[in-house]
Amino acid sequence: MKLTTGLASVATLAVMAVSSATIASAQDTLEIVKERGHVRCQVGPPSPGYYNLDAEGNWYGLDVAVCQAVASAIFGDAGALEIQSVSSQARFTSLANGDSDLLSRTATWTMTRDTQLGIDFLSPNFYDGQGFTVRVDSGITSAMELAGAKVCVTTGTTTELNLTDFSRVNDLDISNVTFEDYNVRDDTYLNGGCDAVTGDKSSMAGNIASFPVPADHMILPETLSKEPLAAAVRHGDSQWRDVVQWSIFALINAEELGITMANVDDMRANSTNPNVRRMLGVEGNLHDGLGLEADWAYNIIKNVGNYGEIYEAYMGGGEQGIGIERAGSLNALWTDGGLMYSPPMR
């Protein structure tokens, strides 16, 4: 743990050193990517829902889909992609020094990161928050009833800090039982080593699904922290930033317009809705400003699907999904009361 923190501080120093210097290549990432023929997209060590390896060795997940969307927008091929798995200590260094073109991994958008590390965050593609899991038969229904409880938590992240803050603010005298590995944390909880587990609600939903009897456990309604998870690019390259940002917006906009992977061909050929026609490149010249082909958004939807489809596949009830309810959450479309909102594409 000490080692990890040490490494993290070395990495942060390195990032700061780089960000103060101007990176010559930062001006034209899009040109570099086009010349290279593929996008170098950074994810982290496998994390359920966001980026995983399947038994065939392929990457899948919500953040991987963002990488694939960007690759589709530029090359029309979701496979024109090199997925790099980078440890969380090295993630921002690896972006800043030009190893990665794009960072698409559960990174929380915070002010320090956005303003001091030489990177720019894009609009969040998932809103997460910290919560508690307890056993149903414990009778606890609110986090306020956790007074004096032992709570299992992983170290080295803000999770532990948030828990301590929460305990102090509400005078609950919670004792932290800390772990490096979340599998061990869950095992301890299952064997009765602690009364509750705390972590990001999204990952806890997945974890509960992997418990022997999922119905014996539940997530408490309280949310301890705001965790807007967003992709990031190097600071100062607006052209590249636009490409990535509008690839993500295209996913959300497509869902709003009802364009899916299945009907995108039909929509492009027959739709009379001007919004759809503009987005899919049938009329107008939206693509000019991005420096991409007219069918960039069509390729995204054709290869990856819209945001709703991606969510269903990896976060929702799909075969590879971790089963998080979307309706009523922050991740629903704005038309359904959520925060997923794309500026108009016109």
Binding site: P45, P46, P48, N52, L53, A55, N183, N207, G321, I322
Partner: peptide, 16 residues
């Protein structure tokens, strides 16, 4: 690295 990734693959979630 591969052995640890098994516990993150959705069908085998938590298998570590």
């Amino acid at each position: 690295g591969m052995l640890r990734s098994i516990s993150k693959d959705v069908p085998w979630l938590g298998l570590h």
